[in-house]
């Protein structure tokens, strides 16, 4: 047993990147999650590294194991794992598995926060608010953002491959810091999104007689602007926390409560 004789070329890396791209989250299953996607993605490159059937089988089974990360950040990990296959050969398979298992969580946290939550939270309201005014400019800005992002993220796999095992030492200390920093950015945006996206009001007006009319919404506004948005978010977050309710149940509950309370004239 020795290190692979074959040296993966840029073309091999590109091919692996593209194969992984087409199935990035498409082979998801409850058992090994994205394991089959990884196997499909890098199987051709692995075959070139391991001409012996036994080695190839061991490598494929190793990559069949449980794996899940955000696709963009994940292609850094898979690229680096392939780089480690090149450096270490099949004897490095446990190190490679540890590497993938150790990094997939933190990178998914960063990737999901930035690409699925933060950036959509910034671009979607722009696209939507301009669309309400009948303009598609906001939507076009969003499209341009995604195209630019795509050009960048296509390089991630190759970067990962070049770094290989060094990937860990490059980012190990930085990872918790980056996660925290992204969290700060995310929470700031979220603090603005809660009042800007949740638009319910309370139309109840109490007539206490003697021209003494109490407008509940006006009262709430002086207490705290967007009070109902804050209150409803707080309740919903409590319900989701600790998985008391699933997302689907929460959506159903919100639909039911909206219909009920609007019929009673309490919210509008």
């Amino acid at each position: 047993m020795s290190k692979p004789v074959y040296q993966l070329t840029n073309k091999d890396i590109k091919e692996a990147n593209f194969r992984f791209l087409w199935v990035s989250i498409a082979c998801f299953n409850y058992g090994t999650q994205l394991g089959p996607s990884v196997v499909w993605g890098i199987s051709k490159a692995l075959r070139k590294l391991y001409p012996e059937d036994e080695d190839y089988k061991a490598a494929l089974l190793n990559h069949s194991k449980y794996y899940n990360s955000q696709p963009y950040m994940g292609s850094l990990i898979i690229g680096a794992a392939l780089g480690m296959e090149q450096e270490l050969g099949i004897e490095g398979k446990d190190a490679i598995q540890d590497f993938k298992a150790g990094l997939m969580g933190p990178t998914a946290g960063i990737g999901d926060s930035i690409f699925w939550i933060m950036m959509p939270a910034i671009f979607t309201p722009i696209a939507a608010s301009m669309a309400y005014d009948g303009s598609l400019v906001g939507w076009l800005i969003e499209c341009v953002y995604w195209i630019i992002l795509h050009c960048f993220r296509m390089r991630f796999f190759g970067w990962g491959f070049k770094m290989g095992g060094n990937f860990v030492s490059v980012i190990k200390d930085q990872l918790p810091l980056v996660t925290d920093a992204v969290g700060i950015l995310g929470l700031t945006v979220l603090g603005a999104l809660i009042p800007s996206t949740i638009g319910i009001t309370c139309p109840v007006v109490l007539d206490l007689g003697n021209d003494n009319i109490v407008n509940i919404q006006g009262l709430l506004d002086t207490l705290l602007p967007n009070f109902l948005a804050v209150l409803s978010t707080f309740i919903a977050a409590k319900l989701l926390r600790g998985r008391k309710l699933t997302m689907t149940q929460l959506v159903l509950a919100v639909l039911a409560i909206s219909i009920l309370l609007s019929a009673l004239g309490i919210i509008a």
């Binding site: 996660t179 999104l193 949740i198 319910i200 409803s232 978010t233 919903a236 989701l240 997302m247």
Partner: peptide
């Protein structure tokens, strides 16, 4: 009317999920 209100209240589901996802 209920569905119109639901349109204004439904974003709460996404916000709640985001809150639990961030280092709150």
């Amino acid at each position: 009317n209920g569905l119109n209100v639901a349109g204004k209240l439904l974003p709460v589901t996404g916000m709640a999920m985001l809150i639990n996802y961030m280092p709150i």
